[in-house]
Design a protein around this nucleic acid. Structure first.
Length: 747
DNA sequence: GCGTTAGTTATTTTT
DNA sequence: TAACTAACGC
């Protein structure tokens, strides 16, 4: 069978496994998606299951789309009845089909993170809660964490006054969502989970239907996602889980690598297959990656190998400053493009945190090299788009107070905060939505509110039965949004974006509507969604591309996190400094995690570094800077421990490797740079600039301390016996020591 | 209601 | 540094 011909033995074994649960440990670049899609194709082609018996779940829409595309290329089947999507997308699909049983209105809306926050703030106003004492973000986090544990307010144990309050607020928030007919992201999962739990017939139906369940990026599943899968699969279920514990980098948002081991127990997994042959990178890159990750203790164990040659050595550069680092990267990029024939888009510059992109961007801009930064606002998150969506939502569900509040006075129609307050009071008193409370208002404010209500009602009436793109077009005009931004002198882009929304609706209409025409079973038939409802779900669940628009062939700039799953011919990993990468905030979290599971912060940072390294196909550049501007201050950092964990024989130092960071090679000039900048910014060190106290170790030099080890001198203060010295000891942290007492040696 | 200003804060991110 | 938020004043 041609389908199987291009597979290596391990891939083949995975693809053709008999019907039983299996864990596939798929290393970076080992053909994970290929295995996943070939497995589905093989199952269908050999008649073991029909398309409607397959459910495949991913984390991102991009991955889901990719999977569908590949399956369609392999098999001439209609994929509509197959459930392929994100956890949230599939849960939404289920809830739309069974909204009644799930206790939701048919036109329930989905709150994204922004919406959730404004919902909480609105609730605070009504209840008179102090946002200083209970930050909305904290409540959102609390609610999310509880839902991930499968806990409703009544199930949450509160130990102190603060937590008792959080539980009460969780309860109030839940009631508000229910009243307004909205669900947040975690609610989609929890509702779907509870729906399956409370409804045996439905559960049996889905368990019988989905004979084969496949999970991508299994190491990223959280507790609720895992339990949802378990419940959906049932006793006889068959889950094909693909993941890589070494690429688990989302513990901070609830991912539990431990689910992999738990899965093997819960599902009595007899088949664990490792995919270790790498088809992406040259040997040196893999040697470096393997060596680095071997420093992690908690691993399932796996080592990448390749048939490709060693390739070039990994180049390492020690820059004097962040500026210098950027200059190095840009010089190298020029060389790669002009002399070595790479496209700009073959090149990626990776960093640990977004703030680091600025210096690189400036450098690229000045050099006239096209670049593209990932990680900004996405299309459906833009304010003007949110406004348009709010109008659209009100057509579908007038009780959506979030949307109502967003646009009741936008564009301005003389409805001030005073009026809104009165309306809110009326609504609260009557226990209804803002929209419904309008009729109970008095006087002038009633009139202006009624005009708004009439506008919504009229748009709803006039767009009935209209094709989606036309509907959207009508709403952005009739709402006054277009006119408003046309008047605004910097509203051009916003008008453009609103028109783009019409295009988005048009392309959505042709590509989607997947579950309208093909009810796979009797139970699915209840669902009758409208194109508008589907489009609104789509807008909430798929916020769109987050890359800044730029020239076609552009250098790619992104965080290491967003680089996961991608590959580039040439990769620069920048900012390899203690405190940045590994990030200082990760050093303290040795044991945490919402479920109490052990989560080692540094181990996760190391996995992140592993992800960074394994993005490179041919050339890998690693760099760090002696000093860099951070939060408006110059900071000195030690070289990252991760650099020292790489085997020397695959590295080529472009600057001399120093035994200890900053031990030699500090020219007088370098010192002056550090000095000048410090005095400009007037920090503590600058105070001592004018003092005549002797400085046995100039700022920037390396010193050794018996207890704290190697560090870099950062600042001085005081004089004589009182004179203190500040040293950055990397992992040991930043310390102020009495100079007369500290036993320091030059390192 | 809107623009200004002072204060605050600072990984990582998808849905 | 710079981006964001909340509060203030017209």
């Amino acid at each position: 069978m041609s389908l199987l011909e291009t597979l290596n033995p391990e891939q083949l074994a995975a693809v053709t496994l008999p019907r039983a649960s299996a864990l596939i440990l798929a290393g970076a670049g080992s053909g994970k998606t290929k295995v996943l899609t070939a497995r589905i194709a093989w199952l269908i082609q050999t008649g073991q299951v029909g398309p409607s018996g397959v459910l495949a779940v991913t984390f991102t829409n991009k991955a889901a789309k990719e999977m569908l595309t590949r399956i369609s290329a392999m098999l001439p089947i209609n994929t509509r009845s197959m459930w392929v999507g994100t956890f949230h997308g599939l849960c939404n699909r289920m809830l739309r089909a069974h909204w009644k049983e799930a206790g939701l209105p048919q036109a329930f809306q989905i709150l994204d993170t922004q919406d959730q926050l404004s919902a909480i703030k609105r609730m605070y106003k009504v209840l008179g809660i102090d946002a200083e004492k209970f930050p909305p973000k904290q409540l959102a986090h609390f609610v999310g964490a509880a839902k991930e544990q499968g806990l409703r307010p009544k199930d949450v144990d509160a130990y102190d006054e603060y937590h008792r309050m959080m539980v009460r607020l969780y309860e109030a928030y839940e009631m508000q969502c229910q009243r307004e007919g909205v669900v947040d992201f975690s609610e989609l999962l929890l509702r779907s989970f509870e729906l399956l739990g409370a409804n045996p017939a439905l559960r049996a139906h889905y368990q019988a239907r989905f004979k084969y369940i496949l999970v991508d990026e299994f190491q990223d599943t959280n507790a609720l996602q895992y339990n949802w899968l378990k419940r959906l699969a049932g006793e006889q279920g068959c889950i094909f889980a693909v993941g890589d514990d070494d690429q688990s980098i989302y513990a901070f948002r609830g991912a539990r690598v431990a689910n992999m081991a738990q899965f093997e127990l819960d599902f009595n997994v007899q088949n664990r297959i490792k995919l270790e042959q790498n088809y992406r990178s040259v040997g040196n890159v893999l040697t470096a990656a393997n060596a680095l990750i071997s420093n992690n203790k908690s691993r399932l164990g796996k080592e990448l190998w390749t048939q490709a040659g060693e390739g070039e050595p990994i180049r390492v550069y020690e820059a004097t400053s962040d500026q210098d680092e950027a200059a190095f990267v840009i010089e190298r990029i020029k060389k790669l493009v002009l002399e070595e024939g790479f496209s700009r888009s073959d090149i990626a510059v990776l960093y640990r945190s977004n703030a680091q992109s600025r210096v690189i961007e400036q450098g690229l801009f000045n050099a006239g090299i096209a670049y593209r930064v990932y990680g900004g606002l996405r299309f459906f998150e833009r304010a003007e788009i949110k406004h348009a969506l709010a109008y659209l939502r009100l057509l579908d569900n007038a009780d959506d107070d979030n949307s109502f509040s967003r646009v009741v006075n936008f564009p301005v129609r003389g409805i001030g905060s005073r009026t809104i307050e009165q309306l809110q009071d009326t609504a609260t008193a009557q226990g209804t939505s803002l929209f419904r409370a309008i009729v109970g208002m008095q006087g002038r404010s009633q009139a202006s509110l009624q005009k708004f209500a009439d506008l919504i009602d009229r748009m709803r009436f006039e767009t009935r039965g209209m094709p989606l793109p036309e509907l959207v077009d009508k709403v952005i005009h009739d709402s006054g949004l277009i006119a408003h931004f046309e008047k605004d002198k910097d509203g051009e882009d916003r008008v453009e974006n609103l028109k783009e929304l019409v295009n988005a609706a048009a392309s959505f209409s042709v590509s989607e509507g997947y579950y309208q025409d093909t009810p796979a079973t009797m139970l699915d038939e209840e669902k009758l969604t409208t194109p508008l409802a589907d489009f609104l779900s789509h807008a909430s669940l798929e916020a769109g591309d987050n890359a800044a628009a730029a020239g076609q062939d552009a250098v790619q700039l992104m965080t290491v996190h967003s680089a996961k799953g991608l590959e580039f011919h040439c990769v620069f990993v920048t900012g390899l400094e203690e405190g940045l990468f590994p990030h200082e905030n990760s050093l303290s979290t040795s044991v945490s995690g919402s479920d109490g599971g052990a989560v080692d912060g540094v181990e996760e940072e190391r996995r992140l570094m592993y992800v960074a390294i394994t993005r490179a196909r041919e050339q890998l550049y690693l760099s760090h800077a002696q000093q860099r501007m951070l939060h408006g201050q110059i900071r000195y950092h030690l070289r990252s421990r991760f650099l020292d964990e790489l085997p020397e024989n695959v590295l080529k130092w472009l600057t001399p490797k120093r035994a200890h960071i900053a031990s030699q090679g500090w020219s007088g000039l370098d010192n002056q740079i550090g000095w000048g900048a410090q005095s400009i910014h007037g920090n503590r060190a600058a105070l001592s600039y004018t003092s005549k106290a002797p400085r046995p170790y100039p700022i920037g030099t390396g010193v050794n301390h018996a207890r704290f080890g190697d560090g870099v001198v950062v600042a001085y203060e005081g004089e004589g016996e009182e004179q203190r010295i500040q040293i950055n000891f990397g992992a040991q942290g930043m310390k102020w020591l009495m100079l007369s007492l500290a036993k320091l040696t030059k390192s």
